[in-house]
Amino acid sequence: MTNLLRHRLFWPIAVLVVLLASNLVFSNNFFTITLQDGHLYGSLIDILRRSAPLVLVALGMTLVISTGGIDLSVGSVMAISGALACLLIGDLSNPDSTTSVLLVVGAAIALCLVFGLWNGFLVAVLGIQPIIATLILMVAGRGVAQLITDGQILNVHSAPYRVIGAGYFLAVPVSFLIAAAAVALTVALTRRTALGLLLESVGGSPTASRLAGIRARRITIMVYVFAAAFAGVAGLIYSSDVSSADSNAAGNLIELNAILAVVLGGTALTGGRFSIAGSVLGAVIITTLDITAVSVGVPVETTLLFKAIVVIILCLAQSPTFRAKVFGRFATKKAATREAVAA
């Protein structure tokens, strides 16, 4: 039992279970899954479908955070990729051609890769703090997205494009499949290759990593490229789901939610050990929370309050000083203060 309690995914899972259970009180058929027109329907399916963008962004964020960095620009990148896709599809002679749509999707993601390289360049080559470096694209990116859409909300009518965010494959939502594939890809990339080890090593101690011969610069650039690529896919899902590109709404506040998801999942903001499963759980929890808010009947935005409380509790729980002060004996407390003074 103690082992179970100590497992690092225990608390995220517990929170998720409680959230899901509390839904039962408000809606009886919360757990009912039905098959309509060959599609699965139900609140649980809805949660899976709507989690997809956040899961994707949180995946990239996890890798960035594991190196001790942070990426604030993911929301803007989402907006840009959706905007570009919708613009290009609008120009297509036949928006229902699958090949053309795939090309468009490829172009949008390619653009995001460029933005990822840009972030990585600022952080790893110019040596600018990650928060500041990615702030630049965070600010300018939405402007770029609006530039692409000419400030309009671009509506598109393209059946193949709509599949990405709102379609079903074998009765399962396509967006969920994309997110699942991304999770599988990330797990394979980090755990099947040595990337995960090297990331954790760079995040754990940059100096020791350099002396062990790790090319930290290259790896750092790579994670920002990943984060941007995943954000780009998330942007496509979002824009496809609503069949339009809204440069203001797309990915609004998602960087903060993604960071929250990563932290909820047990990855420390200081870098090092990361948990992909944890981040995915964190993302699902946040989406469930938003959906729960709706089913309970409070404004969706009120969940911010809950998030604030969660962030505060998590931060305090992660702060060694706090633990020492609150849970430690008087002696430890004194020692901690001393250390703080000495440092």
């Binding site: 911010l304 931060c315 702060s319």
Partner: peptide, 30 residues
């Protein structure tokens, strides 16, 4: 206080503050 006494990163502490303030105002009136 949270930043100083508990050595929480300013970024995170004020992010929580942002959630809190925005959440409270939404709670009061949308």
């Amino acid at each position: 206080c949270v930043i100083h006494f508990f050595k929480v990163e300013p970024f995170i502490a004020t992010l929580a503050g942002m959630f809190l303030a925005r959440g409270l105002s939404l709670l009061i009136n949308r």
